[in-house]
Nucleic acid binder design. Structure first.
Lengths: 197, 197
DNA sequence: CTTATTTTAGTACAGTCGTACAAAAAAACA
DNA sequence: TGTTTTTTTGTACGACTGTACTAAAATAAG
């Protein structure tokens, strides 16, 4: 892949993100995206096989950036309690610093569907996103720091934590001047208390 | 409004719900909805001013049914702790018994936009949905049963509870055989612990 | 039964969509 | 430099959208 190819693809994906963040997934047409990038629609077709391939890049790019931001911060912690705190804190910070992108990911993941109408990214969600949280919970339980979790109840806990983070994103779009620090502190408190023995 | 008018509108709204639940908001065209109802597109135009008015009915209908289901159950409780438990329990039961409708509401509320691209139902969400939870929290704090909440931290708590319920809905669509009872029990535990002193 | 009203089906239309494609422009290479 | 390859533009096309509208059908009223 040439330099120009990479740069163009990056630019187009960036404009797709901005477009989705602004007008929503349903209204984000190739025409809209091209206009924002100040290029012809044909350029998008030239660099991407189709619209689907373009929109796929948004979650893919995001997951990579997300992982390389979150993972080392968690690994730097010793106790599961601290891991959970850092997981929440670093997620909210990451969201705060990548507002448009994260919002575009949520829009894409919850809207993009395959030809038969099923949600495209529904399956990936579990293993990629939920597993790390479940691992922290299991670890904390084994060390006797967290309360007892069955496999299903750890899953509910993980889902609830994840929903809280995604919900924060949507709230942040609605209220851009939200006090992120305060929100973070409160979420840490909530899930600290709810995992305690 | 005549009898036929009411029946037709109800039928069309019902088919709109089913269509959205099945193929998603973006793909739910009037043609699709009409086909499902086995009527001509023209009938929809006759009974509804436009597509927007039709899709509005989905959240409106839902909020009314939701309120008349939830409110009396909460009012029947004495302590805030019980109120919170019943709020969670009755919400999950309501979702479980109205899967398609609730999912269609989430799709509609998080996708329907005004002409200028802004989310249509973003504003309503707060007052209608969040306030009852905030009231329970405030009550519990005043009675000394719950821990201290500032106004913003009570709001985060309310949002987190609400996100947990909405997230449960989406999980239920992904995994229709989910153990609802177990999920409910775990959510009650989580928020019981996290509101305790 | 006749007439008026409500409701339905079917079609037409203007607009937007994603994609395909030909020609022009730019860049890379010799 | 001239030649080839890569990239961009602009347009055209078929498919699909929501809405408008006409004529037919069904129902209600007199």
């Amino acid at each position: 892949m040439s330099f120009i190819e990479k740069a163009r693809r990056a630019q187009i994906v960036e404009c797709a993100i901005e477009t989705i963040a602004e007008v929503g997934y349903a209204q984000a047409s190739l025409g809209q995206i091209a206009k924002r990038a100040k290029i012809s629609k044909g350029v998008i077709s030239y660099h991407f096989a189709n619209k689907e391939e373009l929109l796929e890049q948004i979650p893919i790019e995001y997951y990579m950036a997300w992982q390389s931001y979150i993972a080392p911060r968690i690994e730097a912690q010793k106790s599961p309690k601290e891991m959970l705190r850092v997981y929440i804190e670093s997620n909210l910070t990451f969201v705060d610093e990548n507002r448009k992108h994260v919002f575009a990911v949520i829009e894409t993941v919850s809207n993009q569907r395959t030809a038969d109408g099923k949600l495209r990214f529904a399956a990936d969600h579990d293993e990629t996103i939920l597993l790390p949280i479940e691992n922290i919970l299991t670890l904390g339980m084994q060390e006797g720091i967290f309360r007892e979790f069955t496999r299903p109840s750890a899953r509910v806990m993980a889902l609830t934590i994840r929903n809280a983070i995604d919900g924060f994103t949507i709230e942040l779009m609605r209220k851009p001047h939200l006090d992120v620090q305060e929100y973070t502190r409160e979420l840490v408190t909530i899930f600290d208390k709810s995992t305690k023995k």
